[in-house]
Amino acid sequence: MLEIDNLHARVGDTPILKGLTLTLRPGEVAAIMGPNGSGKSTLSYVLSGRPGYEVTEGTVRFDGQDLLAMEADERARAGVFLAFQYPVEVPGVSNKVFLKAAVNACRKARGQGELDAYEFLKLFEDKRKLVGMGKELASREVNSGFSGGEKKRNEILQMAMLDPKLAILDETDSGLDIDALKAVSEGVNALRDGERAMLVITHYQRLLDHIVPDTVHVLVDGRIARTGGRELALELEERGYDWLKAEAAA
């Protein structure tokens, strides 16, 4: 599904990813943990194609395609979804208008028929309930004036609507209280179907109590420093990241 090989990337003149190698099977949920500045968010932006993130070396194959050769919107239509750490406010555009344009762009590219107004609303209502958002969501402007929790739920709603093959969740737990964390996690878990792969990027292991990963990778200084199972996350919770930083430096 996803094969990242020796990925180097920089932002401006600053190298951030320094030889990252990682594979992900269909249906696999992998956590990416790591200290601040280790390159977690950069990885999510490089994979989703944000302009300004320059790949200097290495390859990324997604479903057999060269992901790095694709534009950001092509990647989305091919099935890559990024749940943003800081979802962007888009005043003047309603959720309904935004999502209908997005869903139909993706469906068209995948050879599915475009949804008409009725079909769209039905899908929207289903997914809205999944993440526990209010009925007025459709007419609200995208993320405008949303609370932190509402923004993150809106990301998961979009993910549910767009039905990606690969979902990258960038610090989805940041800024959430425990109730919002539960609601978001339940939404994510409902989208685990044995086919969809997920990269769950997080600083804290707390999220992994709710979204239980198959694999845990630890990112230190732009490289995967260690890979393990669920227990690795718990060990990090105990010991912090410093011992891995020391190992990586050595």
Binding site: S48, G49, R50, P51, E71, A72, D73, A76, R77, F81, L82, F84, P87, V88, E89, V90, P91, G92, V93, V97, F98, L99, A101, A102, A105, C106, A109, Q158, L162
Partner: peptide, 23 residues
Amino acid sequence: MAVFYLRSRGIDERSARGLLTWA
């Protein structure tokens, strides 16, 4: 960042810019 956000949902760049200008 808003242009990228829309594109990350599958909306092509031209449409994203058009939609944001309209907004």
